[in-house]
Design a protein around this nucleic acid. Sequence first.
RNA 1: UGGGGUAUAGCCAAGCGGUAAGGCAGCGGGUUUUGAUCCCGCCAUUCGUUGGUUCAAAUCCAGCUACCCCAGCCA
Length: 554
Amino acid sequence: MAETDIRPTNFIRQIIDKDLDSGLHSQIYTRFPPEPNGFLHLGHAKSICLNFGLAQDYQGKCNLRFDDTNPEKENIDYVNAIKDDVHWLGFAWEGKERYSSDYFDQLHGYAVELIEKGLAYVDFSTQEEMREMRGTLTSPGKESPYRNTSPEENNAIFEKMTQGEYKEGECVLRAKIDMTSPFMCMRDPVIYRVKFAHHHQTGDKWCVYPMYDFTHCISDALEGITHSLCTLEFQDNRRLYDWVIDNISIDCTPRQYEFSRLNLEYTVLSKRKLIQLVEENHVDGWDDPRMPTIAGIRRRGYTPASVREFCKRIGVTKMDNIIEMSMLEACIRDDLNENASRAMAVLEPVKVVIENFPEDGLEMLTAANHPNDESKGTRELPFTKEVFIEAEDFKEEANKKFKRLVLGKEVRLRNAYVIKAERVEKDEAGNVTTIYCTYDSETLGKDPADGRKVKGVIHWVSATKGVEAEIRLYDRLFNVPNPAAEDDFAAAINPESLVIKHGVVEPSLLEAEEGKAIQFERTGYFCKDRTSTETRPVFNRTVGLRDTWAKIAG
RNA sequence: UGGGGUAUAGCCAAGCGGUAAGGCAGCGGGUUUUGAUCCCGCCAUUCGUUGGUUCAAAUCCAGCUACCCCAGCCA
């Protein structure tokens, strides 16, 4: 797509520029560190574009590292899905993917180092006791009775812990920092806990697993990361990040910088909530086209370039934000307007009989695949005596603002002839079932010779040659702008987020490639879904066209 | 009530002591065999607020206000 020439200038680039100018670093090294406990979503896309984008722009490197320190919540399926999604977005990580678990041996060694320095101890307090002794936001904590155990004894106990001699929850390893710190995370944080869990990478080798705060900074340092970027909620944790690096024998000093996470109107971007949507079957899996997951928007028809452009347009700051859907939609429309081939599809068909067209007549018309790009070629369009048009494109009576088919008036069939509505046939309920028209055979590819003006153009599909199709129209998943702020966000799900239409599409669409964007003229951008069959295609609407008429008409 | 952060248009976002970029949305108009696209124009005398410094302040200083985050053996 024609990507905008927005020149990213953000506070992180300023820091990097400074670090490069001062010679602190000669090359930058970033990393994207997801926990494999769910699918990636648009919030991750922001982080991916930031981390990999920075590495590209500054000719540095970027790792993909799975932050896999909690085996109970993680699995290999998520690992694979995440790798696919990063690739789909168009990025390649440095070397092989990394895992925090690659460093479990080293991490354990650093824990022992802290113990030997008297900077870590094993605590046998219960979770309840630990919480009480931690104090509150406004009152200091109290020191644990286990805090002054000797390094020798701690070492022996930690060794037993590692050997599986203590039960889960019986004890933890804590860093000895400051129980009165105003930073809650510095009040002797737990750095290792006992977990008899099978790990997707290390199997049953370990029964103690390091905590995030202890693991992340060391993993960064071991990989030579220069700029460790994460979201705002980790700002306090930076003190612990630095404390660990400062207190162990490691010669690399990565720096952590925090940016605000992405919030998007009418959806949720928290893994916990997305997992809930999937598990409670509010949606049809992680790749449901209504989901803000990478897998979901991909199936919906979003392109990698449009997502990258979106991330570029929203910028990177420390401000809390909630982005309007229109921002995302503008990005995909810009891409698809330029790149999607056009076709015709009728979502809500009503029959038109062209009375002065031969009974079994068949004319193959030629239509351009793109109005502004001849290189996209043309296609054949069968024109027959009976065609379908969109029910909403006909009215028995209407004022002149209605530029469509009206009884007694003319309209152009897109890529075909001008027709005139002569009379209608209705069912008992009064619904129009057939519109009888005549066509002007001299208007193919040209205006009427007598100079009469026909301003309306509507789309159509041959009734006899068209193909029946299921067309899925998606709308916002929630009907409130900020569902995360609801007491029960699932109660705010939009019951009309999926509307299924049984329409008719032009025959060329039978060969449409799965996932490839097509514009159904006048209605929107669509792509064939993976649930299509040989004879009955299924199309997902990616996004509608801008519709100023709908605004005028209410 | 402790600490860490953030305040520039409806939504994002530049700006870094010299007189408010850009995008999205919106509003006018033009072209058009998609009410699309495209094109043209409009859209902050003012930067949360109150004071101060300065020839000059969104930018520096002080106070105030609002909002977000932190009391997992989650990340």
